[in-house]
Amino acid sequence: MASSDDLSGRLLAGERAALARLISWAENSDRRFPAALSSVYGRVGRAWRTGITGPPGAGKSTLVNELASTLRERDRTVGILAVDPSSPFTGGALLGDRIRMEDRTLDPGVFIRSMASRGSHGGIARATVDACDVMDAFGFDEILVETVGVGQAEYDVISAADHVVVVVCPGAGDGIQAMKAGLLEVADIIVVNKSDVPGAERLAMDLEEAVHLRTAGPRHVAAWVPPVVQCSAAKAEGMEALLDAVARHREYLQGGELEATRARKRAEQVQRVVSERLSEALWGELGYGALVKSFLDAGSTPYDVASDVLSRVLAGVPVAASGDRAGETGASAS
């Protein structure tokens, strides 16, 4: 079996199969992944990461394919992560995004990986940031992350991307939708795709209006006003304008916030990993599930039980020694 050293060495030597396997390790929470990542981590941080999100059918995959083609014309290498949903019932997934990216299959400057969301609900998978890191270490200039088709409030992609591009298309709601809190607020750039379809012009105007209302208000502090760009990805139109907008956002980030923002996202990732591991340990090997059940069976409210559990956890009291109420079930936990 491959060791983490073998694999990271092969990754740094440019072997695509090693990149693919490291992404699998991240997805599977393989215990060799942390060591492999740490040995290539010195090479992470050179790629630009762009998140592409938006509702199902807005044209995200087609847009990613066209963006990749345009970036290749500019001699940029491109790593693409395309996330699709896992079934909440069976855990299975049909990963179909790369069907719309087939032009790029045999291009050595492009690597496309499909990823199932595997129980995450924020539009990306738990391992998406890890996969971006290994693609970055591999040496791609640009990383494009395409999310699951999202609704109004799934925007974890901001944790994986320097730029968030929100893709919408005509026929999916009016100006009031555009004013709501949520997805559009996280956009650094808004794309109105299918610009050849009736209603696109109107939608772009409504969105510009909504952006203006938001960014011109008294509470506005950011110096970046998200531009609205019209594209027709299927006709390969508007890609230059979109990349110009990305370039402007890049300059804006480099003018100040880039390093601080990336550092904050790293810190958030640490918090996520700690929460996951803690939760796994508490409800798994430490056996707090049985403790909770016994408390609830005794008639306590969920809030009282939660306070009780938290005080025990924070005081480091093991379940087995945690006293009278848990005595009958605690010892048999896990």
């Binding site: 069976t90 855990g91 299975g92 990963l95 069907i99 299959t105 045999l106 690597f111």
Partner: peptide, 26 residues
């Protein structure tokens, strides 16, 4: 998929080389 597997469907008309390259990347 309904048996819990993750499926990458290539679409029609693929060359043997394209299928092998997709297998590597995925």
């Amino acid at each position: 998929r309904d048996h819990g597997m993750e499926i990458v469907y290539t679409g029609l008309h693929k060359t043997p080389e394209a299928i092998a390259e997709i297998a590597v990347q995925e």
